[in-house]
Design a protein around this nucleic acid. Structure first.
Lengths: 212, 212
DNA sequence: TGGAGTTTGTGAAAGTAAGCATAAGGCTTC
DNA sequence: GAAGCCTTATGCTTACTTTCACAAACTCCA
C-alpha cells in the first residue's frame, strides 16, 4: 500500500473518525458513494482536509463522483490496522477498567480485551463482563499464549510504572495508559496516554476565559 | 492577569500537566523552586517549550533561579480556572458514568460531579457513589439551583444528541462528551469530545506500521 | 566587587499543518 | 460529442507551533 514518507499526526487522529463515519453511512444510509464535502460536513472537517488526509495513502476517490463507501471503509480499515482483531490485556479491575471492558465501540475498532489482571486478592476470581480477573503472576503466560501486543493500564497513578514494567517484562509492545502519569519505557515500546484530567481542565479553561 | 492575544491550543493542553506536576512536587519533594529544565524532564517536554508556554501568561520565574513551586501552582490554578470548584451534572449511569463519578483525580482539577441523570427507570433512585440517580425531568431544576455550567455525556452515541439538547435547554454552557459522535450545539456552547476509540485506533495504527 | 555559572524571557528561525487554487477526470444533457 | 457542472488530487501559499539563540537577571564564591 502507498504511504507517504511523512504523515501529520493530526491526520492519523482523523482517520478513525472517517472510518466510523463511513461505518455509520454504510449501516444506515443507502448511498454507495460519499463526497469529501459530505464526509467533512458530518465531522466538522473541511473537505480539502479530508481529501488531503486520504491522499497520503493513495487515490481512493473518483473525480466528479466521490468515494465508494464500502471500498474506502475497507481501505481505511487496512490503513488503520483494524482489519484484524487485536487481543489486549487490561490491568486494573476498578470502575474504569470495568467501563473499558464493557465499552461496545472498541470491538469495531479491532480491540478485544481478552484478559483482566488485578493485584487485589479480593478482586481475583471475580468476573468483569465475561472475563475472570487473574493475578499478575499469570501475566507472562497470558501474553505469550494469546500473543498479546497491547496492554491497557487502568490503575492509580502510583501503581502505573510498576504495572508498565510488568507488562513490558511479559512481552507487551504497546501501552494504552489511563493513569495520569508519564511512563518510562524502553525504546520501541509505543505509549498512548489517555489523560482525562487534561480534557476537563481544558474545558474549564475555556469556560473561564470565554468572554475576555 | 496578563494573557497574550493568541495562545496555541497545544499550550493549553500542557498547562494541566504542569499543574499536576507541580502538585506532585509540592506534595512529595521539599524543593521550593523548580527549573523549566526539571519540569520539562518530568513531563517529556523541552524546557524552552515550558518557558514559552508560561510566558504567554506573564513572568513567573526568576532568572538564574527558576520557578517558585507554590506560587506557580497558584498562578496556574488561576489561569486554568481551577482555583474554584465547578459543579457538574453527568448523564448516563452506566459503567463509564460510574467510573467518572468515582475517579479521584477530577476533584483536584476543580470538577465536582454533583448530580447524575439517567433515563432508565431501573437506575433512577440507585446510588452512584454518594449520588442518587435522578430523572431527566429534574435536570432544569438541578442546573438552576446549583448554577451548573458543565454537563457530562456518558450515554451511547445514539442518545447523545437528545441529551445534548436537554442539557442546553436546561441552561448548561459547556459539554464534556464521551459519546463517539459529533454534537450539534448553538453558538457559544463549548464542547470537548473525549473519544476513546480514536486513542486505541491510533495506537493500533502505530503498532501496524512500526517497522515500515 | 567582579567573574563564572545558572536560568529565565523572548524575538527570530525552522519546522509542521491547514487551506487555497487549479488541473484533471467524470457525469449529464442536449 | 461538446458544454456545463461536479468532484478529486495536489503544488503552493498561508498560518500555526516549536525550537533556537542570546540578552538580561540572579547566585555564589573568591
Amino acid at each position: 500500500m502507498k504511504r507517504s514518507d511523512y504523515i501529520p499526526k493530526a491526520t492519523i487522529e482523523r482517520l478513525p473518525l472517517y472510518y466510523r463515519c463511513l461505518e455509520k453511512i454504510s449501516a444506515y444510509e443507502e448511498d454507495e458513494v460519499v463526497s469529501s464535502r459530505e464526509l467533512g460536513e458530518r465531522l466538522g472537517i473541511p473537505p480539502t482536509q479530508v481529501r488531503k488526509d486520504l491522499s497520503y495513502y493513495g487515490e481512493f476517490g473518483r473525480r466528479g463522483v466521490g468515494y465508494h463507501v464500502e471500498d474506502l471503509k475497507k481501505s481505511l480499515a487496512k490503513i488503520l490496522g483494524i482489519n484484524k482483531t487485536w487481543p489486549a490485556v487490561l490491568v486494573g479491575a476498578g470502575n474504569l477498567g470495568r467501563a473499558l471492558v464493557n465499552y461496545e465501540g472498541f470491538q469495531k475498532m479491532g480491540l478485544q480485551i481478552t484478559d483482566v489482571i488485578d493485584s487485589d486478592l479480593d478482586k481475583i476470581g471475580n468476573k468483569v463482563g465475561d472475563i475472570t480477573v487473574r493475578s499478575s503472576k499469570d501475566l507472562e503466560e497470558i501474553v505469550k499464549t494469546r500473543q498479546i501486543k497491547i496492554g491497557i493500564i487502568a490503575v492509580p497513578a502510583s501503581a502505573a510504572q510498576d504495572v508498565t514494567d510488568l507488562l513490558i517484562a511479559a512481552g507487551i509492545k504497546s501501552i494504552w495508559n489511563f493513569a495520569p502519569t508519564r511512563l518510562v519505557v524502553p525504546e520501541g515500546i509505543i505509549v498512548r496516554n489517555e489523560d482525562l484530567s487534561v480534557g476537563i481542565t481544558s474545558l474549564i479553561y475555556h469556560l473561564t476565559w470565554k468572554n475576555e
